[in-house]
Write a protein that binds this DNA or RNA. Structure first.
Length: 305
DNA sequence: AACGCAGGCAACCGCCGTAAG
DNA sequence: ACTTACGGCGGTTGCCTGCGT
């Protein structure tokens, strides 16, 4: 006999994750860590398969995720790495702390690939020996990024020119580019702490179940519908540590109709309506603050993945 | 204001190597 | 030694959103 089946897949939820589900998953992992993905949904009270939970955590909920737009330097690095490694997104992602393979893959397919094609460049890796070398020695590849194929280096430069056409300003010499690449590697390490904090703040904005819909609540009545503006709340680690009661609003305004308010109300008023929560506090604010504290502890104690 | 289209991205699918039983 | 699930990965899909008409 082999192993026990992962899940029967009957009655499992699919599609986009809800805030409650995210909250449950993060809460569970913060409390218990990750030992076996198969058990995570069962123990966390989620109607998802373990694989789905793993994907959600890795691609979206992980606290060390950087998120946000790719910088010019990151794009350069992606192009270089792709020329050497091909579509081995996990290997490429290993060079970018805080970026996921899925994120890089999406960025490549939607932006970079398109731009290279527009320029008449072949976005296919050329150097098979590099691929083999990468197979043989992954650790070495993670330490530095070098351009080994001259043809591809030309392509990279052409791609840069193309980007200038699109909107970016300066042309970069190969020497400058090399310096930039090195600094990216160093900066990405030096900035890990800041990235963690930024990630936390972004995530906090997503998880304030009780808070975001209550702050800066303005209603504007039109002839046909009532539009409500909600300010999603987020607050910084520093601000919280100085004054836990001061919660600084973010600038992101979410416009929704009344159905969102009803949803938010039902969420805060009856958190047990969908799945039973394993929480010992009732006040949504307390819940958020406790969650925040746990998360900040996690950020400082848990090494980046 | 309504509709259609395209782009972006989260999530799913399916395959493969590894490890548990 | 063999079977089978798990975890990881890359490819693909489909939904959501923004933009143009």
């Amino acid at each position: 006999m082999g192993r026990q089946p992962c899940c029967d897949k009957v009655g499992l939820k699919r599609g986009p994750w809800t805030i409650e589900e995210d909250h449950k998953l993060v809460n569970f992992i913060l409390n218990n860590g990750i030992h076996c993905w198969r058990m995570v949904p069962k123990l966390a009270g989620l109607l998802r398969c373990g694989k789905s939970c793993r994907l959600r955590w890795i691609n979206y909920l992980r606290p060390d995720l950087k998120r946000g737009a790719f910088t010019e330097m990151e794009e350069d690095q992606i192009i270089q790495l792709h020329s050497r490694l091909g579509n081995r997104w996990s290997k490429i992602a290993a060079h970018f702390p805080g970026r996921t393979d899925n994120e890089i893959k999406n960025h490549w397919n939607t932006r970079i690939k398109k731009r290279l094609k527009l320029l008449g460049l072949d976005p296919v890796p050329h150097n098979s020996t590099e691929l083999q070398k990468e197979n043989d020695d992954d650790d070495e590849a993670k330490k530095e990024v070098t351009v080994s194929d001259h043809g591809q280096e030309n392509s990279l430069e052409e791609a840069k020119v193309g980007r200038q056409d699109i909107g970016h300003a300066k042309r970069v010499s190969p020497e400058t580019n090399e310096k930039k690449r090195n600094s990216v590697e160093l900066n990405s390490l030096d900035e890990t702490t800041n990235e963690l904090l930024e990630s936390y703040e972004m995530l906090c904005g997503n998880f304030n179940l009780g808070l975001p819909w209550m702050i800066d609540h303005q209603e504007t009545n039109t002839n046909t519908t009532t539009t409500t503006s909600y300010t999603s709340s987020s607050f910084s680690l520093e601000e919280y540590s100085n004054n836990p009661s001061s919660i600084v609003e973010s600038s992101s305004i979410i416009h929704e109709d009344n159905s969102l308010q009803q949803w938010a109300d039902s969420t805060t008023m009856d958190s047990n309506s969908i799945l039973s929560w394993d929480i010992g506090f009732n006040n949504p604010l307390e819940q958020d603050l406790l969650f925040f504290e746990k998360y900040s502890q996690y950020l400082t104690s848990y090494p980046p993945l």
